[in-house]
C-alpha cells in the first residue's frame, strides 16, 4: 500500500460532536471532510485550464446571440445547451485554478482584449474579432450558416487542445482535469457531428 498522497486524515478529524440519534443516545463523531485528494498542479494542466476558459467564454458569447439574431429553432436549442454547458465548465475550471493557487482568467470573454492584440487569447478554433463582427452582423439563415461553420471549427479547436494536453508531460494526471478534458472531448465531438448534420441540411 502506498500513501504518497500528502494529505492526511488526521487534520480532518477535528470536530467531535456528541449527537443523539433518533432511537437513543449514540456518540457520533462527525469528521470534517478532508477535501479531495489532489496532486500538485502541473504546468500542462494549468496551461490547459487557463487557456480553455477564454476558449469556452468566447463560445458562450456567440452562442448567446442565437435568440437575438434570428437563428432557427434547432440552432437556438443547440446554443442554449452550449451556453449552459460551457458556462458551468468555466466555473469548474476557475474553481480548480483557484484551489491550486493559480491566476484565474475572467469568466466573460473580453472582445476589447482581442482588439488590443492580446494574442494569448487566440487558441485553436477561436474566432478573430473580424469573424465575430461578421457573425454579429448576420441574421436568420445567414447567421445559422456562419454560426455552424465557426462553431464546428471552435469545437475542433477544443478537441485539439485536449489532444495536446494528453500528449504533454504530466498532462491530465489529475482526476478533475482528466474528467473535464475527456468530457469536453466527448461532448464536443458529438456536437460537431450534430452541427455538421444541421449544416448539411442547409445545403
Amino acid at each position: 500500500m502506498n500513501r504518497s498522497f500528502s494529505r492526511t486524515l488526521a487534520a480532518g478529524m477535528l470536530a467531535v460532536i456528541a449527537t443523539t440519534g433518533c432511537g437513543g443516545a449514540a456518540a457520533t463523531i462527525v469528521m470534517e471532510y478532508p477535501g479531495s485528494r489532489t496532486r500538485p498542479a502541473t504546468p500542462a494542466d494549468v496551461a490547459f485550464m487557463t487557456k480553455m476558459i477564454p476558449h469556452h467564454a468566447q463560445a458562450v458569447l456567440f452562442a448567446g446571440w442565437a435568440e437575438s439574431h434570428g437563428a432557427s429553432r434547432g440552432v437556438r436549442v443547440f446554443c442554449e445547451r452550449v451556453v449552459v454547458g460551457q458556462r458551468d465548465e468555466i466555473l469548474t475550471m476557475r474553481n480548480w485554478l483557484r484551489s491550486h493557487g493559480k491566476p484565474v482568467p475572467p469568466a466573460e470573454y473580453n472582445r476589447m482584449g482581442m482588439e488590443m492584440g492580446d494574442s494569448h487569447h487566440m487558441m485553436a478554433g477561436m474566432l478573430t474579432e473580424a469573424q465575430l463582427s461578421e457573425l454579429d452582423a448576420a441574421r436568420g439563415t445567414e447567421f445559422d450558416r456562419l454560426f455552424l461553420t465557426y462553431m464546428i471549427a471552435h469545437h475542433e479547436g477544443a478537441v485539439a487542445m485536449v489532444d495536446e494536453l494528453f500528449a504533454s508531460f504530466n498532462g491530465a494526471q489529475d482526476d478533475v482535469v482528466f474528467k473535464l478534458a475527456s468530457d469536453i472531448s466527448a461532448d464536443q465531438t458529438t456536437e460537431i457531428e450534430r452541427m455538421q448534420l444541421m449544416l448539411d441540411a442547409m445545403n
Partner: peptide, 17 residues
C-alpha cells in the same frame, strides 16, 4: 481509462505522454 493508471498499481501516476 485515466492517464495515470499504472501496470504496477503505483500511485505516482505516469507523467510521460
Amino acid at each position: 481509462e485515466g492517464l495515470g493508471g499504472r501496470l504496477d498499481c503505483g500511485t505516482q501516476g505516469v507523467p510521460e505522454p
